[in-house]
Amino acid sequence: MSPGLLAQSLVLGVLTGGMYALMAAGLTLIFGVMRVINIAHAAMIVMGAYLSLTLFLHLGIDPLLSMLLLIPVFLALGALVQWGIVNRLAERDITLTVLMTFGFAIILEGLQGAIWTSSYQGIKTAYSLESFQLFSLYIPVVRLIAAGVSLFLLAGLYALLTFTKLGRAIRATIQNRTSAQLVGVNVRLVTTISFAIGIAIAGATGPLLGMLFTFYPATHWLWIGKLLAIVVLGGLGSLRGAFVAAMLLGIAEQVTSVTLALNWAPMIFYVFLFGVLVVRPQGLFGAVERQSL
């Protein structure tokens, strides 16, 4: 393989990985705080893509602008779902939430099929096909924007978690729920807010997904597999881990599809995952789980 093609696939991998990181960020945050595996996460991202497409086609609202509209909508939706449904189940039996979010994913898929049909869609703006040349590399503008916006939002999330009181409360809840409660953290409120933030990030990623990839109601099954692989590889609940894993897998996927075979590209996620879990069962950045038997 020529060095030019390798460089090109590395660039595509980094840009795609940046977006994967944002997609996985909400999922890992929700797991960290609640120990809930949100199977409907990708279906919510696809929902964001559909809403953005509708806003673009009917009102001419640019997908990047529609992100700003979708964030508060999904924030409210997330808070409502957490407070109204997930919380009640999680208190009884955490494993029930897997079934519940699985069902929620199917409902969202059905809803999308009923409203938008199962035809393939894409959000094509005037700048969709633009690219610029950097030495011998072509950088697709939309991918660069998606990666840039993803990094910006991830940086915002990181700052929120690191430098604010709410962020400290969220991190405390992730580390040890009971101790956080003992030192006066309103764990219930923090949990609801974290869940809502996770869903809001999913909603914000929707327009980016819609601009970069073709989507249809059942696409979320392809995505949730990838996202779970990223989150587990990075270490459940670790934002930093999710970022590193997303970059690794984004690059591995692109390089594989140009060097080995396209059919191998989706599989590389799970090959990586399997390899890492054999050596480090807690994932790249996960803390070792200590649980009483």
Binding site: L5, L12, S257, L262
Partner: peptide, 16 residues
């Protein structure tokens, strides 16, 4: 290269 009917990303194909 053969890609599945579910292929949604053609950037790497185009590059190759």
């Amino acid at each position: 290269q053969v890609y599945p009917p579910t292929q949604t990303d053609f950037a790497s194909i185009a590059a190759a």
